Amino acid sequence: MKRYDPRLEYIEACAAKLVELEYSNDVVAHNRNLEDQINTDPDMMDLQPEIQWYMRPYLIDFLIDSHYSMRLQPETLFLAISILDRYCSVRVVFKKHYQLVGCTALWIAAKYEEKKSRIPQLKELCRLCCGAYEEDMFLQMERHVLSTLEWSIGLPTVESFLSPLLAAAQHTTSVVGHVARYLCELSLFHRCFLGYPPSTIATAAHAMAQYMLGHLSSLPSGLTCHQIQCINYFTSFIKTPSASLTKKYSKPAYGQAAIHVQNILTQQAQQQALAMPPTPPPVSMTMLTPPPPLSSGSGASSPYTPESPTNSDHLTPPHTPSSMAMNRAYAKVQAIDPRYAYPHLEMDIA
């Protein structure tokens, strides 16, 4: 197949960027109107007899790895997941066909977004699935997915709203775009994000990326409650990202976004540890110190030998018992054996 001249591709890309900047506001407004047609329903997906939510991360990992190996555009991945979710919202999918539906959705999205030379062939799809499905099965599933969705493929995705935000932002580095896409792809793994429109997720990811990288001193005040909820979800899930997602965004081609995020989280954890008050000693350590002796005037018994008050630093001998105490002690002994009470008397005991 004859390749295009690289110079023509560069001129075409520059012309496309100029057109996008000129009509960006109209494009965003049109995409917001199309958002209402996205019929992804997580409640209906809950009713799947065999597909469970714990299976979703494995399929998303597979699609991310496949998408990266074929060097496809970011929009292709988000469109593939959108097709997958819309199909699973209205059709029953068996567990043995779950990977087939996901791979077919990626194939349809590549046909819609990529140029002809980038579209994967059927033999490549069979190789990605390790020969689990034949080529005819991909063709049959493609027809079934398109008929189920009524051939409505080009609905807006998260990337459709994130790209204009990155293009319109001033003084924004490429790392912000990579971190924002990292957060957007993180949202593909979790059910809670399916209830929000793509524009909300894109705006929340962009604001959080700017804030994490220090481009904003605080989060924008104009965020809606739904966007703030998405940011809270990002804060929770960003601590345990997928291994495939971390591997992908640790590469220099993606600005090492995962490494930047991990460094930021480590710094925040260290700052929180320094700001915390010192930990008090455990109770077992405080019990090792003996309590001070009670004063003689309190009348309570003490295990310590009473000491006479003195002005010197030396301890004085114990108190000599009083005569009344001695008499009581001798009376008790005499009741037992008088010889022990008065040893100086010679008494005959019969």
Rank of each mutant, 00 (worst) to 15 (best):
N232C: 06
A325L: 15
S199D: 06
N263D: 14
V261N: 06
L106F: 05
N263M: 11
D85I: 06
C14Q: 10
Q256V: 08
Q267C: 07
T148H: 03
Y182A: 02
D337T: 00
A169L: 07
P306K: 04
H190G: 08
T246L: 13
L100E: 09
S218V: 01
R118W: 04
K111Q: 09
T172L: 10
K239E: 15
S284T: 15
Y133R: 10
A207S: 13
N311A: 00
P292Y: 03
L265T: 10
L155H: 04
P156S: 06
V90Y: 04
P338N: 05
L162N: 06
Q210T: 03
H144M: 12
G131Q: 05
R7F: 01
M1L: 04
T289E: 13
R118L: 13
I228H: 08
S242K: 08
E159P: 00
P120N: 06
G214K: 05
Y54P: 01
I38M: 07
K115D: 03
Q272D: 08
E159H: 14
T200M: 04
T279M: 14
D313M: 01
A180F: 04
F237S: 06
V179S: 02
R127L: 11
P343F: 15
N327V: 14
R3P: 00
P164M: 10
A180K: 04
M208N: 02
H206S: 11
M326H: 07
F161A: 09
P252Y: 10
M137I: 00
A341S: 15
I81F: 13
C225G: 01
A204I: 13
L122I: 11
S24M: 15
T240N: 15
H260R: 13
S221C: 06
E35P: 04
T240W: 11
Q229M: 11
M347C: 03
H97V: 00
I264C: 09
R191K: 15
V261C: 12
D36R: 00
D46E: 15
P281F: 09
F193A: 04
R71W: 03
P303E: 14
P303R: 15
A15R: 07
E185C: 03
P317E: 10
A16R: 12
K95H: 10
W53N: 05
H97Y: 06
V261D: 05
L34P: 00
N25G: 01
A15D: 13
C14G: 01
P241M: 10
Y10R: 09
S312T: 01
M326I: 12
Q262G: 05
E159G: 03
V261P: 05
T200F: 00
G222H: 10
H190D: 14
A275V: 01
F138C: 08
F193Q: 03
I38S: 02
P318K: 07
P49A: 05
C130L: 06
P156R: 06
N311S: 01
E307G: 02
I119V: 14
P252M: 09
L8Q: 04
T76K: 02
N33S: 11
F193L: 04
S24R: 09
G214L: 04
Y23S: 11
S312G: 03
L165C: 10
D36A: 12
M276E: 14
Y4K: 02
Q256M: 14
K123A: 14
S160H: 11
I60F: 04
P198H: 07
S163I: 13
A202G: 07
I38G: 03
S152C: 12
Q140I: 02
D5H: 13
H144S: 14
